[in-house]
Nucleic acid binder design. Structure first.
Lengths: 345, 345
DNA sequence: CTGTTAGCGCCTTCAT
DNA sequence: ATGAAGGCGCTAACAG
C-alpha cells in the first residue's frame, strides 16, 4: 500500500491548485461549479480521504470528545455511553470511551490520554469524592461532570439523575400501596451517593411529619452478594409481619430477593422489595423487580449536548438533574385494599 | 485561557532548542541527564501537554483504534468493548467506539469517520452478510472482523467465539443429563449466524449416529419476546412429557422460561431450557439459566491484540475462534439417575 | 550531545 | 474565481 493521497494529489489530477481543492473539500464556497465537479471526480478517482488530523491541527478542533465512566460493561454506564454516542454522532464528533474501573489512578491516566489527543472536551464520572475539581481545569479542555459526585464541584456543569425526586417516586409508590418506613439497603462504597440517598429518604418522611429516625439500615457492597448479605442481617432482626425493603441499587435488590427466597420467604407475599436503577436484569427475575429507572441514555445524550455548548463558548454553569421514573413490576405487594379495589373496578 | 504551550515555549523556558525538548519528550535518548531534568521542570512549570495530533501527523500513527459493534448498550458487546479497551490501554492506544445499530448505513458512516480520523486500524462486527470485504481494504486501514460473519471473508483475519464447540458443549451437557434432541429456538435475523448454529447442531448428532432431521425448530427475533412467541408455538405442538429447549441466545431462552411459566409449566421440572451467550441477566432469573458462555471480553482483548500485530506489519491471516464454556445453573433438569447418584456419591 | 532545517496535510489570508 | 505562501506542533535527518 502506497502513500495515501492528499489534496496535492487531487490537485494534480484535477489540474488545479491545492487551495482550490481545499476549498472544494470544505464546502466549496467561491469555486465555480465546473471546478467543483472536476475536483470531486478527481478525488473519487484516486481515492482521496480527508485527513482529519491535519484539519484538526490547523483548526484547533479535533472533533473528538472523551467520556470516562467507571465501567463500560456495567449496563447502566453502557447505556449512558450509548446516549452519549448518539448525541456525538449527531454533531459529527467521535467519542473516545474509557473505563476508570473505579480507580482514580486509571482515571488520571485516561484523562491524560484525552488531553494529549486534544479532545475538544470531555465528560466524566469522577471517582474520587475528594479533589476540588481545579485539577480538571488545569487539563485545559472543557469538561462536564456525570452523576451525583458533581455536587462537590459547585462551579462545574453537570448532568445526572435526580436522586431526591427518584427516592420520592419510590416512597410515594410504597406509601400508596400501604407500606410505611421501609428498611434500607445502602451501598457502602461511594460515601457521597450513600449520603444523598439516605438524606432524600429522611427529608421525604420529615416533610410528611413521619419520624424517619427509626428506619433500620444495612450497608452492603453495590452487588448482588452485598444485597444478600445485608438482607440476611436485616432478616435476623426482623420481628415478623410483612417486610418492606428499599435498596439503593437494583443489584442489591436482586440479592435481597434471592436471600429472602433462600430463607423460604416469598416475594412479594412475605417481603416487598423496591430497587433503584432500572437495569434490564430486573425484568427477568422472579418476581420481576419493581424499581426506579434512571434515565441513563438521556443522561449520556444531555451530557454531550451540554458539553458541546461549553465547547462552543457558552460559559453558563448548568446542573441538569433528569427525572427518574417508576418501573412497576411485581416485587412490591399491594397492602392497601382500597387501591386493589380501585384498580379492579 | 491563552494558547496552549508548545515545545517551543518549553524550549525558551529551559533555554534549549526545540529539538532537544522534542527528544526529551519522546524518551530522552541522546540527551544529558542535566538537560532532561531542566526540560522536564520547565515543561511542568508552564503546564506543557504533548500534542498527539501533531505527533500523529509527523509519525503517521495516531495511536487511535476504532471499534464498531452493533450496540454498545447490549451486554455482550459492552463486554467485548471492555476487553478491547483494556487491550488498547495496555498498548497506549485509545479506542473510538461506535454502534452501528445493526444498520449498514450507520456502519458505513462510522467507518468513514474512523478513516478520516486516521485510526491506525479498526475492528468491526460486519452487519451486512453480503459485500465481499474488499470495500474494507479500500478504506486503507488495517482491519479485523469480529464474530461469525467473518467466515464470509476468507482473506481477512478475525476473532470470534467457536460456535461449533459451544454448541457441542451444550449438547454434551444435555446428553449427559438424559436429554436427547432438544427443540431449537433460533434467531431469524442474521441468516449466517442462524445457519452456523443449526449446522453445528446437525453435525453434532450426525457424528453420533443420531438422525437430527426430526428436530423441531422455531424462529424468533433475538429478543425475550421473540423467545416467548417461539416457545408458545412449540408448546402448542408438544405432545407431553419433559420438554427440552435449546435457544440460540439467552434472551430468547429467558423468554421461553417466561412463556412456560405463564402457561403453568415449571422450569426445570416440566421444561428444561439451555441458553447460549452467557449474559448476566441469566443469573438472576428463576430458575437461573444454564447456558453456554461466550468469551466476550477475551474476544475484545484478542481482537485488539491481533489488530496491533496487523498494524505492525504482520500480514498473516489468522482466524481466532475462542472456546465457549458451560455455565451450569438451574434451568436444565437432570433426567439421568446415574449422574445424580454419581454426583451425590 | 545539541541545534538547524525541512516537512507531515490542511486551511487561510493575501494577491491576482 | 483561483493561485501562492505561511504555519498549526512535532519529528527526523543532517550538521556541528
Amino acid at each position: 500500500m502506497t502513500r495515501r493521497p492528499t489534496i496535492i494529489d487531487v490537485a494534480k489530477q484535477a489540474g488545479v491548485s491545492k487551495s482550490t481543492v481545499a476549498r472544494v473539500m470544505s464546502g466549496g464556497q467561491h469555486v465555480s461549479a465546473r471546478v467543483v465537479e472536476l475536483v470531486e471526480s478527481a478525488a473519487k478517482e484516486i481515492g482521496y480521504q480527508k485527513n482529519n488530523l491535519a484539519v484538526s491541527m490547523r483548526s484547533g478542533r479535533s472533533g473528538l470528545i472523551g467520556i470516562v465512566v467507571p465501567d463500560i460493561s456495567n449496563p447502566f454506564w453502557a447505556e449512558v455511553a450509548r446516549g452519549a454516542q448518539d448525541a456525538a454522532a449527531s454533531t459529527n464528533s467521535s467519542l473516545l470511551i474509557f473505563s476508570s474501573d473505579w480507580k482514580s489512578e486509571r482515571e488520571r491516566k485516561h484523562l491524560q490520554a484525552l488531553v494529549n489527543t486534544r479532545v475538544d472536551g470531555f465528560v466524566l464520572n469522577r471517582i474520587s469524592d475528594s479533589s476540588d475539581g481545579r485539577d480538571l481545569e488545569l487539563l485545559g479542555a472543557p469538561s462536564l461532570l456525570l452523576g451525583t459526585t458533581a455536587d462537590l464541584f459547585p462551579e462545574k456543569s453537570s448532568v445526572g439523575s435526580d436522586i431526591t425526586q427518584g427516592v420520592g417516586v419510590a416512597l410515594d409508590y410504597l406509601t400508596a400501596h400501604g407500606h410505611e418506613l421501609p428498611k434500607l439497603i445502602l451501598g457502602s462504597e461511594r460515601r457521597l451517593a450513600r449520603a444523598k440517598f439516605i438524606t432524600a429518604v429522611n427529608e421525604y418522611y420529615i416533610n410528611r411529619d413521619v419520624d424517619p429516625t427509626r428506619i433500620p439500615t444495612e450497608d452492603g457492597a453495590y452487588t448482588v452478594d452485598g444485597g444478600r448479605a445485608a438482607m440476611a442481617r436485616l432478616l435476623k432482626t426482623h420481628a415478623g409481619g410483612h417486610l418492606t425493603i428499599f435498596a439503593a441499587n437494583d443489584l442489591m435488590a436482586l440479592g435481597a430477593i434471592l436471600e429472602a427466597r433462600s430463607q423460604g420467604l416469598n416475594c412479594p407475599r412475605d417481603v416487598s422489595v423496591m430497587g433503584f436503577d432500572g437495569i434490564p436484569a430486573g425484568e427477568f427475575c422472579d418476581p420481576p423487580l419493581t424499581t426506579v429507572g434512571k434515565p441513563a441514555k438521556e443522561i449520556g445524550r444531555q451530557s454531550i449536548l451540554s458539553l458541546q455548548r461549553l465547547i462552543d463558548g457558552d460559559a453558563a454553569v448548568a446542573k441538569l438533574r433528569l427525572a427518574c421514573e417508576l418501573v412497576e413490576r411485581g416485587s412490591v405487594l399491594n397492602l392497601n385494599p382500597e387501591i386493589a379495589l380501585a384498580q379492579t373496578g
